[in-house]
Amino acid sequence: MKSEGSPSRRASAVGRGSKMRAAVLEATITELTETGYAALTVDGVARRAGVHKTTIYRNWEDTDQLVADALAGHFAADIPIPDTGAVESDLRALARSLVATMTTRAGRALLTTVLSDAARVPRLAEVKHALFDDRFRRAEPVVTRAVERGELPSDTDPAELLKALAAPIYFRLVFTGEPVDKGTADRAVHVALAAARARVLPAV
């Protein structure tokens, strides 16, 4: 008789199809957070997900595809774009949303992955670019509406303003390890708005 913790009992509990896929991708995010990209193995993901490793090999070509699917799946959801009628409150909502997202397990997993040797893997590099490009594209209307309302100079580059907004947050997350919270987000808003209003973020 097999014990409660045996692989076959855990695998049958997880099941197949969408439940299995969700369990494996969630386990991949956890493994990335706790062990990093370089140490991630199919065996480790399988144990954490409660499936046999052959199940993973049948559904994913290799660990790079597994990591790419896990990260893309966690960040694929639409981001609500604020429209409060004022650029400062819109940007504050965006910045706080970024802080909330990047301080989750999935956010930390994304950072540790893109800052590792994984950055050299074409498939993962594509996921990184797609994720960040998509977020800037979705948020650009916040800036264009502010320009139309006369809150920002007419030549303000939306992408440059959004990069100025995100930069202080990522600096703490990646380089200094300082706490990242709502206060960090609000200060980033003031910095980005000051730069835009000083006309140092013009469209090229």
Rank of each mutant, 00 (worst) to 15 (best):
M20G: 05
V99D: 02
K128T: 11
A95S: 12
S18T: 12
G85V: 08
K2H: 09
Y37D: 03
D181A: 11
V99C: 06
L91K: 07
S154R: 14
K53P: 13
P179M: 07
R187Y: 12
A27I: 00
G44E: 06
A119R: 15
D117N: 03
I79K: 09
R138L: 12
P179N: 08
R172V: 05
A27Q: 04
N59G: 08
E31F: 00
R197M: 08
V87S: 03
P168I: 11
P7R: 13
R199G: 09
T104H: 05
E148N: 03
R149M: 07
V180N: 03
F136V: 15
I79D: 11
F132V: 10
K2Q: 10
E88Q: 15
E126M: 13
R137A: 14
L193V: 08
D64W: 05
A166C: 10
V174K: 08
D62W: 08
V200N: 03
A13H: 06
I56W: 02
S6D: 13
A195Q: 13
G177K: 12
R96Q: 14
G73M: 05
A185F: 08
G36V: 06
G85Y: 08
L201Y: 02
I56K: 01
D157N: 13
G183A: 14
R123S: 13
R108F: 01
A72P: 00
D181H: 11
L111W: 00
R96F: 05
E140M: 15
G17I: 06
L173S: 01
V200M: 08
T55G: 01
D186H: 08
P179Y: 07
R199N: 15
V99P: 01
T28R: 01
V180R: 03
E140S: 13
A159S: 13
Y57V: 05
V200W: 03
P158C: 07
G73K: 04
S97G: 15
G17V: 06
W60V: 04
R199V: 14
T33V: 11
L152G: 05
A109G: 14
V67G: 01
S89K: 14
S3G: 11
L110V: 05
R58N: 15
T176K: 06
V114M: 10
V42L: 14
A93E: 13
T33D: 12
D186G: 12
A185R: 09
V121E: 13
T63P: 01
I81M: 09
D181G: 06
H190R: 14
V204P: 15
L165K: 04
G36M: 04
D186I: 05
A76G: 12
S97H: 12
R48F: 04
M20L: 14
R149W: 12
E4V: 11
A109L: 10
A130H: 14
L32V: 09
T104Y: 05
P122H: 11
A11M: 02
G36W: 04
P7K: 10
S3Y: 11
A198P: 02
T41L: 00
D62I: 02
A70Y: 03
K2A: 11
V42H: 00
V24R: 02
G107Q: 06
V174A: 14
E140A: 15
A195Y: 00
R16Y: 08
A106R: 03
A188K: 02
I79H: 05
L152D: 03
L91R: 01
V114F: 09
D186Q: 07
L94A: 13
L66C: 09
T33E: 11
M1T: 11
I79R: 13
R47D: 15
P80F: 07
Y37W: 14
A185W: 06
F75I: 05
A167E: 09
S8M: 08
G177A: 00
